[in-house]
């Protein structure tokens, strides 16, 4: 069973291809990193798979089913810049949004769902901040709240768009530990990751993208000059030094 089975995905804006004929299969119960240079179409890939932007796609299976059948079990955590942090919602309100996909129209979250949302908040160690407005938290805390929302959604597939941008090292460590726990529970986590730093340490599988799929596989296979050079168009050794430095 694959978490994502994408066959021939192409996304174009006007005349240029943002993604060109990408076919890939990503395994379940793993931590997958999508890497590649700026403008490689990493976020576009996530959005296209979720049907958020117009795309041509031969076939798409999500968790071995059609996208429509599993929508409520797929959680998406947006880039920081996509959220209005001054919005009048408290931390607990955000987590409770995880219950919305399962509720139909006109239905409000039940008491049991509110309790469950608080438990999810507890799991990410943020229950002390339940009453705070979302913008009052640090970047790392905000990411944890959004992960709690994905837990409240009981998502089996989590798509995270640049979760480590603008957060401190301690928070990053905490989040990656949390993602590992989720993987151990059998969930699949796909992370758009902007640099190669720690990629080897964090992920089971890497998907190297630059408009086309360059390579996919275990990090030790992917983080080699053979693959990185065509993707980044730079001599690799400088890149690796940068990554480790």
């Amino acid at each position: 069973m694959y978490a994502l089975d994408v066959d021939r995905l192409t996304v174009s804006y006007f005349d240029t291809h943002a993604l060109d004929d990408v076919s890939v299969r990503l395994p379940v119960a793993s931590l997958i990193g999508i890497i590649g240079p700026n403008g490689a179409g990493k976020s576009t890939f996530l959005k296209a798979v979720l049907g958020l932007i117009p795309a041509r796609i031969e076939q798409l299976r999500v968790l071995d089913q059609s996208l429509e059948a599993v929508r409520s079990r797929v959680a998406y955590v947006p880039q920081r810049s996509a959220i209005d942090w001054d919005f009048p919602v408290r931390v607990q309100d955000v987590v409770l949004m995880g219950c919305y996909p399962k509720l139909g129209l006109f239905k409000r979250p039940s008491k049991a769902q509110k309790v469950f949302a608080m438990e999810c908040l507890e799991r990410v160690g943020m229950s002390d901040h339940a009453e705070r407005q979302i913008g009052e938290l640090s970047g790392g805390q905000q990411q944890r709240v959004f992960l709690a929302r994905a837990l409240a959604q009981e998502a089996e597939l989590l798509l995270l768009d640049e979760p480590f941008v603008g957060i401190d090292v301690a928070s990053e460590q905490m989040i990656i530990e949390l993602l590992r726990t989720l993987r151990a529970e059998g969930r699949t986590i796909v992370v758009v990751h902007h640099d190669l730093h720690k990629a080897e340490d964090y992920f089971d599988t890497l998907m190297l993208l630059n408009k086309q799929l360059i390579a996919v596989g275990p990090p030790s296979d992917i983080l080699t000059p053979e693959w990185l050079e065509p993707a980044y168009g730079l001599p690799l050794f400088e890149r690796r030094k940068e990554g480790q430095g």
Partner: peptide, 10 residues
Amino acid sequence: FDPTMAQAYG
């Protein structure tokens, strides 16, 4: 608040 999530769940 989060139109992308709203769209993502249909």
